[in-house]
Amino acid sequence: MAQYFSIHAENPQTRLIQQAVQLLQQGGVIACPTDSSYALVCSMAFKDAQTRIRRLRGVDDNHPFTLLCRDLAEISTYAKVNNSQFRLLKAMTPGAYTFLLEASREVPRRLQHPKRSTIGLRVPRHIVTQTLLEALNTPLLSMTLQLPGQEVPMSIGWEIRETLEHQLDAVIDSDIVHVGATTVLDLTQDPPELVRAGVAPWPLLLA
């Protein structure tokens, strides 16, 4: 049965964050709030955890994960970023944007786009998510928590626990949760392309 962590949205309890980190370090799968609804997250190190997330979502091996990163420096570790891309990233992070970039050697091949060698990355604007990333000290693999047959992602902690309590290791509940998907921008294109319109607006600097 999934553990249930009620974590303050502005002052996350260190003890609960550490318990969530321990589960992730042991290969656990957690439902975590972000600035664009809930996400299923796991450590990059555990392929079994990634398989569990794909199974929960009802998607195949071609459905991409997104790397949740703490900041621009971490994005630059896991993606190849040129000067113009860096300026855009600096202007739009943190926020509910996912950026498609060429993956660096730090990203396992199984997580890259099979033909383009790209990876989606984002820096969430959510204190609980950021605190979890800081404590873990490495990016998290994530996928929007939208189950098969659902039209919108899940956004209420207790409902997630009731629905998935036997399939998750933990649910992090928080007072501040948004509903909707991220806005996806392909920065490998010049000019950048809007891949998916989400909760974040189309940036004026790209208009």
Results as ranks from 00 to 15, higher is better:
residue 46 F to L: 03
residue 46 F to N: 07
residue 47 K to W: 00
residue 48 D to F: 00
residue 51 T to K: 10
residue 52 R to S: 11
residue 54 R to A: 00
residue 54 R to I: 00
residue 55 R to K: 14
residue 56 L to F: 06
residue 56 L to Y: 03
residue 58 G to E: 09
residue 60 D to T: 05
residue 61 D to S: 15
residue 61 D to Q: 15
residue 63 H to D: 13
residue 63 H to F: 12
residue 67 L to K: 06
residue 69 C to V: 11
residue 69 C to E: 03
residue 70 R to D: 13
residue 70 R to M: 12
residue 71 D to Y: 11
residue 72 L to H: 09
residue 73 A to T: 13
residue 75 I to P: 04
residue 76 S to W: 01
residue 77 T to P: 01
residue 77 T to C: 15
residue 80 K to G: 07
residue 81 V to L: 03
residue 81 V to Y: 01
residue 82 N to C: 13
residue 84 S to W: 08
residue 84 S to V: 14
residue 85 Q to V: 13
residue 86 F to Q: 12
residue 87 R to P: 11
residue 87 R to L: 14
residue 87 R to V: 10
residue 87 R to H: 11
residue 88 L to M: 10
residue 89 L to I: 07
residue 90 K to L: 07
residue 91 A to D: 12
residue 92 M to Y: 10
residue 93 T to H: 08
residue 95 G to E: 04
residue 95 G to V: 12
residue 96 A to V: 09
residue 96 A to I: 09
residue 96 A to T: 08
residue 97 Y to K: 02
residue 99 F to S: 04
residue 100 L to S: 00
residue 100 L to T: 10
residue 101 L to W: 02
residue 101 L to F: 05
residue 101 L to R: 07
residue 101 L to T: 12
residue 103 A to L: 03
residue 103 A to P: 04
residue 103 A to M: 07
residue 103 A to F: 01
residue 104 S to G: 11
residue 105 R to E: 14
residue 105 R to V: 01
residue 106 E to S: 15
residue 108 P to V: 00
residue 110 R to A: 14
residue 111 L to C: 07
residue 111 L to G: 03
residue 111 L to R: 06
residue 112 Q to N: 08
residue 113 H to Y: 00
residue 113 H to A: 04
residue 113 H to D: 15
residue 114 P to N: 03
residue 117 S to M: 00
residue 117 S to L: 10
residue 119 I to S: 00
residue 120 G to P: 01
residue 122 R to H: 13
residue 122 R to Y: 02
residue 123 V to L: 08
residue 123 V to W: 01
residue 124 P to V: 00
residue 126 H to Q: 11
residue 127 I to K: 15
residue 127 I to W: 06
residue 128 V to N: 05
residue 129 T to W: 03
residue 129 T to H: 07
residue 130 Q to P: 07
residue 130 Q to N: 11
residue 131 T to K: 07
residue 131 T to W: 06
residue 132 L to I: 13
residue 133 L to G: 05
